[in-house]
Design a binder for these strands. Structure first.
Length: 283
DNA sequence: CACCATGTTCCTTG
DNA sequence: CCAAGGAACATGGT
């Protein structure tokens, strides 16, 4: 479910639900998702701690916690992988088939479920250190962007997925931003013109910003039972009917380009699908 | 059965 | 040493 907008919307929901809550017990049902922590270490560290704040960096969630008898806070790192979901539900609610970690709270329980178990919930923060500037942050400027792109010969679409370049862009919005900027996904990063860089910088922020605004309007079902609990990830979610219709090229192979009616094309780059209009994106 | 899937990390290749 | 490409991870949908 996760690219920057989906994570941002989730963080906005989780903040108010978790702030002030105390963790009474930790249940790890799939230890892979807490690596390199061990279930015992995680439980020992989290039990008794209280949630202070929930933040986001790139596609990562940061849970600031404070231990029982200490001012010295620490941070728990979350990532949704491809299929992860996180929500708070009533304490006695049934757990989903792929519940990976459950945090029993003083009121309700926090559930991290993940069908494919690519996600993470860990005290190891090393992956966050490698992130580049926030896509929607002030540090991400056209100048910075240009300087970084100049050093790579990779196709621009592939480069956009590099989280050390810009944090938060994923496979869907990379295709969408390139389409809006009229740039070919195959163009080498170091061959973009200044104008193209400025446009791409703008369309990236536009696409991510619009998605956050859209996702923010959707309700959240805290029971966690319904397939779409207000998380508007691609392809499902109640209330997100037509979400894929908001995407202009992603997963629209063979359909008419919204600008020129040329059939949208699907290609594979670095083992991932890219969608684009061969007519509108020639630059 | 075949192929596809919103992501990250690790290993190999050049 | 570095950049780039590909596979692995794990499960389910079509």
């Amino acid at each position: 479910m996760p690219e920057l907008p989906e994570v941002e919307v989730l963080v906005r929901h989780l903040g108010p639900a978790l702030r002030g809550r105390r963790i009474k017990a930790v249940e790890v049902r799939r230890s892979r998702v807490i690596e390199p922590d061990s279930p015992a270490d995680l439980a020992e560290r989290l039990t008794g701690a209280r949630f202070r704040e929930v933040r986001r960096q790139g596609k990562f969630l940061l849970f600031d916690l404070r231990p029982v008898h200490s001012r010295l806070g620490f941070t728990l790192l979350g990532h949704l992988g491809m299929t992860g979901r996180m929500y708070v539900q009533p304490a006695r609610a049934a757990l989903p088939k792929h519940a990976a970690v459950v945090l029993r709270l003083d009121r309700g329980q926090f559930v991290f479920e993940d069908t494919r178990y690519f996600g993470r919930l860990t005290l190891d923060l090393s992956s966050v250190a490698a992130l580049g500037p926030e896509a929607l942050g002030a540090e991400f400027t056209p100048d910075q962007f240009a300087a970084d792109l100049k050093r790579s010969a990779q196709p621009i679409k592939v480069k956009l997925l590099d989280q050390s370049l810009v944090a938060g862009v994923g496979n869907i919005y990379a295709s969408e931003a390139l389409f809006r900027a009229g740039i070919s996904p195959k163009r080498r990063a170091n061959r973009l013109t200044r104008n193209q860089i400025v446009r791409l910088h703008a369309t990236l922020r536009e696409v991510l910003g619009e998605a956050i605004r859209y996702g923010s309007t959707l309700p959240l079902d805290w029971s966690g039972r319904r397939k779409g609990d207000g998380l508007f990830y691609y392809g499902s979610a109640d209330g997100a009917v037509g979400y894929d219709e908001r995407l202009r090229v992603y997963d629209h192979a063979g359909e008419a380009c919204p600008k020129c009616a040329t059939p949208i094309r699907r290609i594979v780059q670095a083992t991932r699908s890219t969608f684009y209009c061969p007519q509108c994106q020639r630059g």
